[in-house]
Amino acid sequence: MYYSEVTQRVIAFIESNLTEEIQLDTFPSVIGYSKYHLLRIFKHETGKSIGEYIRERRLATAAMLLLHSNETILTIAFLFHFQSQEAFTRAFKEVYFLPPGKYRKLMRSIQMMEEEKEMNESKEIKGWSLSGSNPELYEITLDSDVFHTGTKSGLLYSKGVLNEQHFATMMQGFQADDYKGKRLKLSCFLKTEDVLKCGAWLRIDNAMGDTIQFDNMDNRSIHGTSNWNHYSIVLDVPGDSSSIFFGVLLIGQGKVWADGFRFEEVTKKVPTTNMLDVEHLPKQPSNLDFNEE
């Protein structure tokens, strides 16, 4: 698979230590690889340096605290290891275009208005739709309380206790014209709570509606509760491709948050994760008389 265990472990460590002092020199002993290998792999797979990721996540978590707690700006600044309130304010404005105090006041006002309208408005998310075998048992919505970056994430969740016979997806599709003949990487950040099974997925269809490339992370799916982590899928887009569909799949019960979807062209040196690839098939048939166990 394209994304590595190295990236997964680095992100998991960072997510568990956002309010702790994180030194790059500590990563080799924690993750088990040299610092320069970690820096190179992480940058290559996520598009960000480890330092950029830490800063981004600290500011996003600080934004959540500004909105959902009464902690002072100075306390929040020190919590995330900024040297002063002024340093925190400068960094925060670079990402959210407002100083922390104005952000808190504005976003709380917006949140109050949204809560007042919530009972009368649909749960639709622009560009995204809910589908699956049992969409009536699931819902999708925007979540301004939990997000990886920015101010919101997409949330797909079950309405009750469900099993593996039920599934739904938060998805969208677009034309394949701009990507024909290319190798396409989809990446995103996912966070889960009490899920039976879930993962990102990507599908390439031709003009006849036949699926010609597909991966839903079935061989590396997410279970239970997990913090934000980075996941990716790599598929070829053949010349006869017509449509590209993607999203997040939730099987059974639970909640899955999605944020930071990204598409990019990669070289042929990057292996695909296509589940329909002939290389994934056995060379010979087996158990033809059904006597093998």
Rank of each mutant, 00 (worst) to 15 (best):
K117H: 10
E118P: 05
M119Q: 13
N120A: 11
E121F: 04
S122D: 11
K123F: 13
I125L: 10
I125H: 15
I125Q: 14
I125P: 14
G127W: 05
W128T: 08
S131A: 13
S131L: 05
S133Q: 07
N134P: 05
N134W: 03
E136Q: 12
E136A: 13
Y138K: 06
E139I: 14
T141Q: 10
L142Y: 14
L142Q: 12
L142G: 07
F147R: 03
H148E: 05
T149G: 01
T149D: 01
G150I: 00
T151M: 13
S153A: 06
G154S: 07
G154A: 11
L155P: 03
L156M: 04
L156G: 05
Y157T: 13
S158K: 04
K159Y: 10
G160E: 08
G160I: 10
N163L: 04
H166T: 11
F167G: 00
T169N: 10
T169I: 06
M170L: 15
M170C: 04
M171R: 13
Q172A: 15
Q172R: 14
G173N: 11
Q175R: 11
A176L: 07
D177Y: 11
D178T: 09
Y179F: 08
K180F: 01
R183K: 02
K185C: 06
S187P: 00
L190V: 10
L190W: 02
T192L: 00
E193T: 10
D194R: 13
L196I: 10
L196Y: 03
L196D: 02
L196E: 02
L196W: 00
C198M: 06
G199A: 06
R203K: 13
I204M: 06
I204Q: 02
D205L: 12
A207T: 03
A207R: 11
M208Y: 06
G209K: 05
G209N: 06
I212N: 06
